[in-house]
Amino acid sequence: MTRVHDMGGRFGDGPVVPEREDAPVFAEDWHARVLAVTLACGSLGKWNIDISRHARECLSPQDYARFSYYEKWIAALADLLVKTGVLSVGDLSGSGDSDLRELAAKALRADSVAGVLASGGPADRPSPLAPRFTKGQAVRTLRPAANRLVEGGHTRLPVYAQGALGYILRLHGAHVLPDSNAHGLGEAPEPLYAVVFHASALWAAPEHPEDDVVLDLWQSYLEPV
């Protein structure tokens, strides 16, 4: 049921190696180009943030593991451009000549960059669903952690938190449901909560009895206890 990106709690990765605080923002020039090409292509309006996250998750496990961070981005972008029909397989292999004048009108121009980055893309929406849970209420997450609309689809409930007992910490309002939005099934907004889990509800050997973990989880990921 899982995909390779869902790695929270995994063993075997070795130590974190922090860079200095003053290290360059982009370690390589091509990292910056990948970020910029990806953001610019987003302005074409052919996908949303959930679709682009899912495209990275759909890299094969072998590619996901061997690619560095920005290699994942550029590979997923190429895949997404073909999947959405912006480019053809022929375009990537050097034989395409599709006419895209209409879409090119949407291309992000330099003088629009500041406005686009500053306006962002809020994910809160009015929802017909009333909040079902109140602060402090005990809830249990779904098990298995999986998209219930599309088999193998995008979801934001990590496996390490599936079937776990937690408590509502706060209500964030209603937000776009990634499980739906990543698959072109509509935004389907529903109440989103910060839910706190004792470390002992998640791990066999927590480091400290008072530690906890908070996840942001949609109402449909949760059941009352």
């Binding site: 982009f26 090409v37 590979a75 992000l108 980055l117």
Partner: peptide, 27 residues
């Protein structure tokens, strides 16, 4: 990877789907 992003950037620029000046601005 550096050649991969360069290749994709070139294809997209030729089709008018990205503006290299906008990329510089984002960076």
């Amino acid at each position: 990877p550096a050649l991969r992003v360069k290749a994709l950037e070139t294809i997209l620029t030729r089709k008018g789907l990205i503006d290299p000046a906008a990329l510089d601005e984002i960076i």
